[in-house]
Amino acid sequence: MIQMYHVDMRYAGGAFGLRDVSLHVERGEFVFLTGASGAGKTSLLRLLFAAEAPSAGQVLVSGRNLSRLSSSQVPQLRREIGVIFQDFKLLGERTVFENVAVTLEIAGASRREIRARVWSILKRLGLGHRLDHRPRALSGGEQQRVAIARALVNDPPLVLADEPTGNLDPDLARDIMDIIADAHARGTTVIVATHDPTLLERYRHRLLVLEGGALVQDNAPDSYPGSVRRAVSTSA
């Protein structure tokens, strides 16, 4: 699903976002990306949905080489990726229903399909009674669930989540992770960036550790018993 070969990413000022990162993520895999703030987690995710371009190396997502992707091909790539942000990025003037429907509208779905799918996912995520509310009327956990519904409503083959539980209390964080895990169980490839060791210990998936933009550890799910906190704190 994802292949990266010796990827560097530099920001406009010359600072490195990523340094010589190479990795493979198989279709249907669940991968945690961890590291301290500024380690490159967000940079890596932004690279995968073509919000940033690599300065060197090759990035392939679903067989597409992102270095060769023209600007007109980027929207099609993004329609196949569900992105969940820490700050939710919801449209304040639109209702919960409309926020989730955006993804399907942009994909060109029919109104009937939009109604059915948005209703179905919001009901599944426990927001069936919030369809007509604006985001500001919702709690943080509910807002994040709307953002997740928007990312998943199109059944994308790949989901990228950047600190999806960052602003939530532990119980809500667990709820959110359960929803993402449920999407993974239905075959979606998932990459979650987090620096929350509790989540990493609880869910036990492949764990990539970034430090200063470089990939310093690639742990299989069963190869880091008890070392999660150490891995995260070392990189911090």
């Binding site: 949905f49 919000a51 600007s71 007109s72 929207p75 099609q76 790539l77 993004r78 329609r79 196949e80 992105v83 990025k89 919801l90 449209l91 955006v102 993804t103 942009i106 994909a107 928007r150």
Partner: peptide, 11 residues
Amino acid sequence: IQRLVGAGGLF
């Protein structure tokens, strides 16, 4: 947000 979820330039 529209661009992040795959809206093209014309959209």
